[in-house]
């Protein structure tokens, strides 16, 4: 298949399909993440990237048969490797004997959060999650440095008229989006704060929140979105999220515990855990939202600049 957009569409189907698979495996949180990341935002980002680079694949430089052969061999080896693995749900499987029983049996007393995934993610393995937040933050910084916004605002009138015509064109979608955007935003925040009780948490919430903002930017133009969401502020929020996460860890150090040991944050260990998880999830949510928005704005902004330059040359 040479048409890259068709490929992106099929990748979207793949995301939906794997989310269904996760749901069937009862991995609700993973399905949630896949729903928002795999099917939603990555499709959008890929589309933006394609609209910058062009729609068709480059002429073939590799041998597809050879590549297919290599993939086949690798896949075969991987499947061969899984033969040695214990059966799914076997009692003596390594995954069932080491830390999992502790998570399942003791997390309610130690952390006091009904959703075990959240307590594992945010409390037991808080350091890992900190690393993930930092990775996302780094990605944001990378995009910021690699794709500096080339602001060549000469023909503001042209863009204004373009926006006007777009308003006429997409009237139905626009009005429906106007009604929907507040609810998407609120739903994202609901996901953010109810990670303790059900599926959800900072990552998912951040992505949904960013998706709402991206929807706004798509429909109402990038400039309107830039006016609504201050660029400097969003960069500040990205840093603030990581900082919040880190400082929770530092405060717990200062209170005499280990790094990211929330039990010492308050007098009651359980309440401390709750507060700590709430804060770090908030930090993750801030970082994810703003990094996603930054990436999108920079990609799409670059594309618009390119178009402007092209139009300028044509004149």
């Amino acid at each position: 298949m040479k048409d890259l957009i068709a490929v992106v569409m099929l990748a979207g189907i793949y995301g939906l399909l794997s989310a269904c698979f996760f749901v069937a495996m009862d991995a609700v949180d993973v399905a949630f993440t896949e729903a928002s990341v795999g099917a939603g935002i990555s499709t959008l980002l890929m589309l933006v990237a394609i609209s910058m680079t062009g729609r068709s694949e480059q002429a073939e430089r590799h041998k597809p048969a050879l590549a297919f052969f290599v993939v086949l061999i690798t896949g075969g080896l991987l499947i061969y490797g899984t033969i040695d693995m214990p059966y799914v749900g076997a009692v003596d499987a390594p995954i069932q004997v080491h830390v999992a029983p502790r998570y399942i049996n003791d997390s309610m007393q130690e952390v006091g959060v009904p959703n075990i995934v959240t307590s594992v993610l945010a409390s037991y393995r808080g350091f890992d999650t900190f690393g993930e937040a930092v990775v996302i933050f780094t990605a944001g910084i990378g995009v910021l440095t690699l794709l500096p916004a080339v602001r060549s605002r000469k023909d503001d009138d042209a863009i204004e008229s373009l926006n006007e015509s777009m308003h006429e064109q997409h009237m139905i979608v626009r009005i429906v989006a106007k009604m929907l955007i507040p609810f998407i935003l609120l739903f994202a925040l609901y996901v953010q704060f109810h990670g303790d009780f059900g599926p959800g948490g900072g990552f998912q919430a951040g992505v949904i929140f960013a998706a709402a903002i991206i929807l706004y930017a798509i429909l109402f133009g990038l400039d309107a979105a830039r006016r609504a969401i201050n660029q400097t502020f969003i960069q500040f929020v990205a840093a603030f999220g990581v900082l919040l996460y880190g400082s929770v860890g530092v405060v717990s150090l200062l209170n005499g515990g280990h790094f990211l040991d929330y039990s010492v944050l308050l007098a009651d260990p359980i309440a401390g855990q709750h507060l700590g998880i709430l804060l770090i999830e908030l930090g993750v949510g801030c970082t994810v939202t703003s990094v996603m928005v930054i990436i999108f704005f920079h990609f799409a902004g670059r594309k618009e600049d390119k178009q402007n330059i092209k139009e300028g040359e044509a004149r």
Partner: peptide, 9 residues
Amino acid sequence: FINPTASHA
């Protein structure tokens, strides 16, 4: 609410 809009789009 969403599907007719998406179809129309």
